[in-house]
């Protein structure tokens, strides 16, 4: 296909991106070099590096940064681990039943962060469903504190973003040729062996695609950490919100976000290259 045609196909999306995404983003870059005037949104347009130097003057920002990545990594790994058994189960069903189950398992996404968070709130509260249940069965003596802890946030994130992983994973599991399993079994491989040497390598592209989606969703999540973290778990999204909406320090929140995006860009680019490598292996034609 000629390059000219490719450009024509990309053009509408690119135009939309430039107009709606790039220009506001450029505005943010401009803002990030302006001076904050406390209490107002009218920032002083004289040029300053202060917003950026502030980022490096205090270890607190790195703490948030580190915590954000840690929570995202743990959540993504947990999603990965939880999604395999379910995806294998789903891919072993006949098409009709699977359809229904796939539909059910996407509900956490369709329902949206608001509804999920409300539900978790009710369950994870000090006297919520889970604690009442465990107390009633005399498994625990004192209620477990879920809300306001990283554990609570991770539980919420994992549940919300599981479907993002299950969908690509099931599609790549289904693409695996059944005969490979049969021959592996014929050769006497036990299920765990088959799982590690056949299932995982062959489903890696799907898992990778899902993992990138989940990872990025976790990094930029806001509703879940702010409600389940109860202001105690500051991550990137909650801190940006605090600076931008509550303190209304637009110049600083702009520089904070730009710094975050630049450093994240490196991580994601690496993940993308990795995913591309995996895809190449899977479909040699690319």
């Amino acid at each position: 296909m000629k390059t000219k045609h490719v450009w024509a196909l990309v053009m509408p999306a690119l135009l939309l991106f430039v107009l709606i995404f790039l220009v506001p983003f450029l505005l943010l870059i401009v803002k990030s070099f302006q001076t904050y005037v406390p209490g107002t949104l009218i920032s002083d347009s004289s040029f300053t590096w202060e917003n950026y130097t502030q980022l490096f003057s205090d270890g607190y920002y790195f703490k948030i940064y580190y915590r954000t990545i840690r929570i995202a990594v743990i959540s993504t790994l947990a999603v990965l681990v939880l999604s395999y058994p379910l995806s294998i189960f789903l891919s072993s069903m006949n098409a009709k039943v699977r359809g229904v189950f796939m539909t059910i398992s996407i509900l956490p996404m369709i329902g949206g962060a608001m509804i999920q968070t409300m539900g978790w709130f009710a369950m994870l509260m000090r006297y919520g469903t889970i604690n009442s249940f465990l107390l009633g069965l005399h498994i625990i003596k004192d209620p477990i504190q879920f809300l306001g802890t990283e554990l609570g946030v991770i539980i919420g994130l994992v549940q919300s973003f599981l479907p993002m992983m299950i969908y690509p994973l099931v599609s790549s599991l289904l693409a695996i040729d059944r005969e490979i399993y049969d021959s592996a079994r014929t050769l006497g491989a036990r299920p765990p062996k088959i799982f590690f040497s056949v299932t995982i390598p062959l489903s890696a592209p799907g898992a990778m695609a899902g993992a990138i989606l989940v990872f990025m969703a976790c990094l930029t999540s806001f509703v879940t950490p702010s409600s389940l973290g109860q202001g105690k778990i500051q991550v990137f999204g909650t801190y940006a919100y605090q600076q931008a909406i509550q303190v209304m320090n637009w110049p600083f929140s702009s520089s904070y976000a730009i710094f975050f995006i630049l450093s994240m860009g490196i991580v994601v680019l690496a993940l993308n290259l990795l995913a591309r490598g995996l895809r190449r292996k899977r479909c040699g034609s690319m």
Partner: peptide, 13 residues
Amino acid sequence: IDSRSERTLRWNK
């Protein structure tokens, strides 16, 4: 309001 930005950081920390 004038000191809110610094105070927020202190409150957080």
